[in-house]
Design a protein around this nucleic acid. Sequence first.
DNA 1: CCAAAAGTGTTTATACTACACCCATGA
DNA 2: TCATGGGTGTAGTATAAACACTTTTGG
Lengths: 234, 234
Amino acid sequence: MTNYAEHSPILVAIDCIIFGFDGNDIKLLLIKRGFAPAKNKWSLMGGFLLPNETLDEAANRILKQLTGLEGVYLEQLNAFSAVNRDPEERTISVAYFALIDIHKYEKQISDQYHAEWFLLSQKPKLIFDHDEMVALAQKQLRYKAALHPILFELLPDKFTIPQLQNLYEGVYDTVFDNRNFTRKLLSTGLFVKQAAKDKSTSKKGAFYYKLDKRKYKVKQAAFLNFVPKADKFL
Amino acid sequence: MTNYAEHSPILVAIDCIIFGFDGNDIKLLLIKRGFAPAKNKWSLMGGFLLPNETLDEAANRILKQLTGLEGVYLEQLNAFSAVNRDPEERTISVAYFALIDIHKYEKQISDQYHAEWFLLSQKPKLIFDHDEMVALAQKQLRYKAALHPILFELLPDKFTIPQLQNLYEGVYDTVFDNRNFTRKLLSTGLFVKQAAKDKSTSKKGAFYYKLDKRKYKVKQAAFLNFVPKADKFL
DNA sequence: CCAAAAGTGTTTATACTACACCCATGA
DNA sequence: TCATGGGTGTAGTATAAACACTTTTGG
């Protein structure tokens, strides 16, 4: 450790791994890069850190730029720093992952960036180390969701329990016993049953639930163990 | 997101939160800064990212510089980026936390940096945002250690169960029931009992154990739940 | 022989898992 | 009426928590 003189400047970028859920599947929002290097290749949405903003601010700015959304779930994932990860200049990138309600984003904005939602299983090859970022984000999503109630960030205000189960099954790529799943979920006391039903997926209809926001905030930090044998999936 | 031209360069630093365990208490290794700004103030050990190394490499380099140790437990914690966190120049810092066997580090090296081990409860005020880094590292240590077997990184090859319990009690600042603790620990099958005893802390002596390195690697990813009601401590 | 730390078992309560049938409804 | 998805209960097992006494041995 020496003084500050003569340290080669290094560019600092942010990349966002944006997850959405369409009611059936987990999806990833990708853009077609409009500039060199790697023009027209699929990529995560990203940008550079500006002189007077923090990384969190930059990530929020970049997310809003693409989706029009503010105040969504955003979490710093990891800084990626392989020496030649960006062929143009030495750049490190701090990856953030975001969970958004896919129905809320503004399509016309994301059209500017030629953005598309991809199933994780049908994700194209991405530029630089973005595949690695996505893989880590997926791992972190599984890890975190096994312990903490975060997947609700992907759902609209009102959602049904079968929807929620779909979501969990998508994240862990497996099936859960619906009786055990429901019981565990409701036993947290996080959910408020609504009078109305969602009849879009069955004749009988499934009751809507809302999150109890108060309790939700309190239990963010608690270990809830929604996922049976969670360590098998990590 | 634009092209690469004219992005203000930002310095990239690394800071290491170094934890050790002396058999009784968790300690933190701090240095007295030998250069401006904040000369002679207590600080984490840090340095700048060099053009041809990754962040992980830089963290390892910095750690070795201070302790002489290589191959120790080191984990990227978070990137800190408040705009004025460093008064000299715009610098973001990627914090790493390290777990080392306090008996293995080379004192003469750390003497060069005027390094000292501090009890967490007696930590002096640190420069910049280093207090925040330490707080986050402590939180992450509790979080991780509640779920994964990592605290062994702080112990020598051979250790006793009472030592281990001391360590856990130090991390969570509480006391555990020794019967339940021992049973849970041994039920993992991670430990190999040695013939010899450590007689330094009692007349009866406590048996040494070693980690089963094979099983240890396998179970790194498993949830082990060593800490009763772990969510109370997070 | 006694102080000080190490080591050990049992009981109870809670949480998890496996498992299968009835319900409501629109077509 | 029937096909489709939604909703519910129980019994067995495993895990966790609470709890106190005996063992060893150096001084």
